[in-house]
Simulated scan of single mutants.
Amino acid sequence: MELNTIQPAVGAKHAKRRVGRGIGSGLGKTAGRGHKGQKSRSGGFHKVGFEGGQMPLQRRLPKRGFKSMNAPFRAEVRLSELNGLAVADIDILVLKQAGILPVVARDVRVILSGELTRAVNLKGLKTTAGAKAAIEAAGGSVA
């Protein structure tokens, strides 16, 4: 193959459509736009979703739902997950290294779910009232 012999594939290139060049071309007179109406005019078109003045669908339907931007940074930890850890002093870094929390988690809360059978000391973690009572009942502390 030489540089001077390279050609586009057969059918890849085709002539530009020249409209409005007489009856014989098949695209004369109305130039493929049909007859009359807004779409046939030069510059005559409307925005996406416009329904001719009728209230558009996206405005007829009710607004619903909300996606929090903070969701990926919030996380919950169960008491049963704390029970499975080998260390007694627990903070966010320990939980991330154990794979219990995602790396991006910043706002961590310990919830009352499962049982805690040993004493653990929490540092820098928020807890629910029930979880705090369960931790203290097991001989642990929340700082």
Rank of each mutant, 00 (worst) to 15 (best):
residue 64 R to H: 05
residue 85 L to G: 01
residue 32 G to I: 01
residue 53 G to V: 12
residue 68 S to T: 07
residue 105 A to N: 06
residue 22 G to K: 02
residue 115 E to V: 13
residue 108 V to E: 01
residue 46 H to F: 13
residue 64 R to E: 05
residue 3 L to Q: 10
residue 78 R to P: 01
residue 56 P to D: 15
residue 14 H to G: 15
residue 112 L to K: 09
residue 126 K to S: 15
residue 101 L to D: 01
residue 35 H to V: 10
residue 125 L to W: 15
residue 8 P to I: 02
residue 27 L to E: 11
residue 71 A to P: 04
residue 98 A to R: 00
residue 46 H to D: 12
residue 140 G to H: 11
residue 36 K to P: 01
residue 23 I to Q: 11
residue 96 K to N: 00
residue 38 Q to M: 10
residue 69 M to V: 13
residue 112 L to S: 14
residue 27 L to M: 10
residue 78 R to A: 02
residue 135 I to Y: 03
residue 22 G to F: 02
residue 118 R to V: 03
residue 41 R to E: 14
residue 43 G to A: 12
residue 76 E to V: 04
residue 72 P to I: 05
residue 126 K to Y: 11
residue 94 V to Y: 05
residue 96 K to R: 04
residue 31 A to L: 05
residue 65 G to E: 15
residue 91 D to C: 04
residue 29 K to V: 07
residue 142 V to D: 08
residue 131 A to Y: 05
residue 29 K to Y: 04
residue 101 L to W: 02
residue 10 V to L: 10
residue 62 P to L: 07
residue 32 G to E: 06
residue 90 I to F: 01
residue 99 G to C: 00
residue 58 Q to F: 14
residue 25 S to A: 15
residue 56 P to V: 13
residue 108 V to Y: 00
residue 99 G to N: 00
residue 125 L to V: 12
residue 128 T to N: 07
residue 117 T to F: 06
residue 115 E to R: 12
residue 45 F to W: 12
residue 90 I to M: 01
residue 75 A to F: 03
residue 130 G to F: 06
residue 139 G to V: 15
residue 94 V to L: 02
residue 93 L to F: 13
residue 52 G to Q: 03
residue 121 N to Y: 08
residue 139 G to F: 12
residue 109 R to M: 15
residue 109 R to W: 11
residue 125 L to N: 08
residue 102 P to S: 08
residue 126 K to A: 09
residue 138 A to M: 11
residue 88 A to P: 02
residue 73 F to C: 03
residue 135 I to V: 09
residue 41 R to G: 06
residue 44 G to P: 02
residue 46 H to P: 07
residue 55 M to K: 12
residue 23 I to Y: 13
residue 112 L to V: 14
residue 95 L to S: 02
residue 27 L to Q: 08
residue 9 A to P: 14
residue 93 L to S: 09
residue 29 K to T: 11
residue 21 R to P: 01
residue 139 G to T: 09
residue 68 S to R: 14
residue 86 A to N: 04
residue 71 A to Q: 11
residue 78 R to F: 01
residue 2 E to I: 02
residue 101 L to F: 05
residue 93 L to R: 04
residue 119 A to M: 05
residue 129 A to F: 09
residue 18 R to I: 15
residue 111 I to S: 04
residue 13 K to T: 09
residue 79 L to W: 03
residue 35 H to F: 05
residue 108 V to C: 04
residue 78 R to D: 06
residue 98 A to I: 00
residue 58 Q to T: 13
residue 19 V to A: 06
residue 141 S to E: 09
residue 103 V to Q: 14
residue 107 D to P: 04
residue 123 K to L: 14
residue 66 F to L: 12
residue 80 S to A: 10
residue 26 G to D: 03
residue 141 S to H: 08
residue 29 K to R: 09
residue 16 K to C: 12
residue 53 G to Y: 10
residue 99 G to T: 00
residue 135 I to D: 03
residue 64 R to C: 07
residue 61 L to C: 05
residue 58 Q to D: 12
residue 133 A to W: 10
residue 143 A to V: 06
residue 131 A to P: 03
residue 4 N to H: 11
residue 117 T to E: 15
